[in-house]
Nucleic acid binder design. Structure first.
Lengths: 212, 212
DNA sequence: TCAAATCAAACACATATGTTCTAATTAAGA
DNA sequence: TCTTAATTAGAACATATGTGTTTGATTTGA
């Protein structure tokens, strides 16, 4: 399962496994004695001995004289961000745009993303329904990740809220003269020309993900 | 930056900020006294007082009587998988298929994926170059994640190794009679008909990711 | 204005915890 | 087998640490 995982003793493999599970469950590192009990080891010195070896072999880091200061080295564990899948979106179908508070309520479907993928931004996700974005190479069932924003450049793929119609859709954004052209990403659909006062940009598409 | 961050006292905001930065830097939670010093607070009791409030308001979790048992509510620590981006692939361009050992060597570009996204499988990734897969809604610059396999069903998108030609490409797989049809995902390209003995399936595309 | 909530400072205390020392035991190699 | 290295055991030590208490100042809200 890992690079040089081979040259680890059974003890060390057990401890490493315990570390991973403990930190997933508790969100903080275990103490030496918790490792001792969790791995059925008779003495804390044995734990310390093996931790030292795990550190020398580059699997973990430890702080000296600091309790619970073990961290895993090979980023087997990283911070992930739970991104809410706010709903399905299809051309012309209104999407209730949630308040900031709703964004992180726990009772929605969540998508786990790494920090790399969100670039530290507070994103949210939508599931695409239908083929309304087919020209943008986004298919039915794909998930698009959006970064909240209130402005964007021409040609960017954004979620816009049409105030009068009270609906939200995904379109390509073009500022043309004193109108805004919202271009569907499907050749069979007509663009919408809207008054700038009527459109409010909700978010910019930053990533698209498709599972086969 | 967070749900009801508004109704936090300045102290609590400072502490929360310190928590985030400390855990980012050290990969483990701070002790009460480290928070005290880091935030220029005169007493541990004040830290405890504010931590209790932060917990009540749902920003953090704490374990009772457990040192360094603070965890942030939003960012979860989960297991992630470092997936190697083995190289770029374009129609007709040979791809050197690495051995199992090379798969996890550390000196390549890596893609961080969550367990959800890999479904626990030992996947690898390729960056798509050019528009050879445009009909499969996969564009230049997209990253495809593949699950190693030696067999597949008709119509699946797979990486195949053509032994005689000694090259690997991404195609749709069709078993037709005693031949195998490898269909490019671009209408302007012709399919390849190959002898079953000449094709070896390397992996099946399970996910496609596009960053904007 | 008064009363309650909050903050500050200093201290006490039990124990959680990393570390060390030495001896016993097991594994490995010649 | 003998010798040496690696690992385990058990106990003890020093301190790091969460928590509680007390007293007094400050702020807040009705």
């Amino acid at each position: 399962m890992d690079p040089q995982m081979a040259d680890l003793s059974l003890r060390q493999k057990t401890i490493l496994q315990f570390l991973i599970e403990f930190m997933e469950d508790n969100q903080y590192p275990p103490s030496v004695r918790e490792i001792q009990n969790g791995c059925d080891i008779s003495s804390t010195s044995v734990v310390d001995y093996n931790l030292r070896h795990l550190e020398e072999k580059g699997f973990i880091n430890r702080g000296k004289e600091i309790s619970r200061s073990i961290s895993l080295e090979n980023n087997q564990i990283k911070r992930t961000i739970s991104v809410p899948i706010l709903g399905k979106i299809a051309a012309g179908v209104p999407l209730p745009m949630p308040s900031e508070n709703d964004l992180w309520s726990t009772d929605q479907e969540m998508l786990e993303l790494t920090e790399d993928q969100t670039q530290g931004k507070k994103v949210f996700a939508l599931m695409v329904e239908g083929t309304s974005m087919i020209d943008a190479l986004i298919n039915d069932g794909d998930i698009v990740v959006l970064e909240p924003t209130s402005s964007c450049d021409n040609g960017e793929m954004v979620a816009v809220w049409l105030k009068n119609e009270n609906e939200t859709t995904l379109k390509k954004f073009f500022h043309e003269g004193n109108k805004i052209r919202l271009q569907p990403m499907n050749a069979t659909m007509e663009p919408i020309f809207a008054d700038p006062a009527n459109v409010e940009i909700q978010g910019r598409v930053v990533t698209a993900i498709r599972s086969m």
